[in-house]
Design a protein around this nucleic acid. Structure first.
Lengths: 217, 217
DNA sequence: GTCTATACCTAGATAGAC
DNA sequence: GTCTATCTAGGTATAGAC
């Protein structure tokens, strides 16, 4: 018997943990945090309820890991877009669009991350991630103010507004099963975001996918 | 023994029920929905836990009543301001200001109404009330678009954005105990709201200081 | 290491005394 | 009508078998 786990063992354990987190994420996206009991998650992962505690010390720890992994992906994607190429206004528009599109493509998960009732530990994590969204938006807004494409403003406030606005707008479509016209929704959302930051409406609107200056395809 | 309750009895019962709802509201504002157990609420009202069920068939029913009463007040106040005197842009600014000021004056309750984790029944009620906020904002925005003081836009989207933006901005101050400069916060918030709706920045900004014809004096 | 069975706790709800 | 005491359900976490 080796004193340490063999590399194969370690990998297997990590894989099992990964699988558990993935399945838990799926369950949460499907039924929400409140209904995602340890037994439900364990069932989804094909293991016994007790076995969950081989990987996480508590249900809260598992929930936090689920949230961190999913929300972290979103923050990373948003960060890449907002810090990408182009002028600040273009990047802002692209960021909002990407954020919204990803949420609409995975509504259950987005709702869980943004709005669904959750235990305090997850709620704290959510606040933290919203702060990170805000910081990313605030950064690009400050750039815009600095180079004169955006009017002077409290970047933190506008950033918070954008986070809240996008979330609020998405929650309604998220709740309903109805599809709606996502193209038009994205266009209106982007237009609203640019107004909110004070971008010059006279300037040519950043291209969406196929150029709909008035939002109607 | 009378076949029906005497008027005095009815009044006494209603008063007891009222008192219970008031105390429950205070508890919720203080510790949030999750910690507002039946026993905690009953203690606050000075009655036994079992007696709660003389007035409400379930905890959820009580919670919904608490939410309805508190949120209904806010919707009414907002509606009065948004449908009051002045041009649409002024009313919009006043509405945002009143909404925010009232929330900041009663942070615990505002947080409970806007964001705190709650059971599904309350969550559904919350969605419904947010729809009502949106409808009110959308109405005044449509008026502004109609009379040309606001640019063409999807009023529902902007309204949703305003609801989310104000909520998001308030949640941070709401969570922290710190006071901050509420005057500056209100001014920035109003400015953001007007930008968001596309109000002409060149126009003189609606007054923000002194005179309180609206809200709690 | 994983499963089965279970202990335990919290919190909503009920029954009967006063 | 209100209180005390209790019942019950649901869900987390643990212990011991395999």
């Amino acid at each position: 018997m080796p004193y340490r786990k063999t590399p194969a063992e370690v990998r297997r354990l990590e894989a099992a943990r990964d699988h558990l987190v993935s399945c838990a994420t799926a369950v949460v996206a499907e039924v929400g945090w409140a209904q995602a009991s340890v037994t439900a998650v364990a069932d989804a992962a094909g293991i016994a309820a007790g076995s969950v505690y081989q990987h996480f010390p508590s249900k809260a720890a598992l929930a936090v890991e689920v949230f961190r992994r999913a929300a972290g992906r979103e923050v990373d994607v948003l960060g890449q877009v907002l810090r990408g190429d182009g002028d600040p206004v273009e990047r802002l528009a692209a960021g909002v669009r990407v954020f919204a599109r990803r949420a609409l493509e995975n509504r259950g998960l987005a709702y869980a991350l943004l709005a669904a009732p959750a235990e305090p530990a997850v709620g704290a994590e959510r606040l933290d991630h919203r702060r990170r969204y805000r910081a990313l938006f605030a950064e690009v807004i400050r750039e815009g103010v600095a180079d004169g494409t955006l009017p002077p403003q409290d970047a933190e406030i506008t950033a918070a507004a954008l986070t809240g606005a996008v979330g609020e707008i998405l929650v309604a479509p998220l709740g309903t099963a109805g599809e709606g016209d996502t193209g038009a929704l994205l266009a209106e959302l982007t237009a609203m975001a640019l107004r909110c930051a004070g971008a010059d409406p006279a300037a040519p609107p950043p291209r969406t996918t196929t150029r709909h200056p008035e939002g109607t395809p």
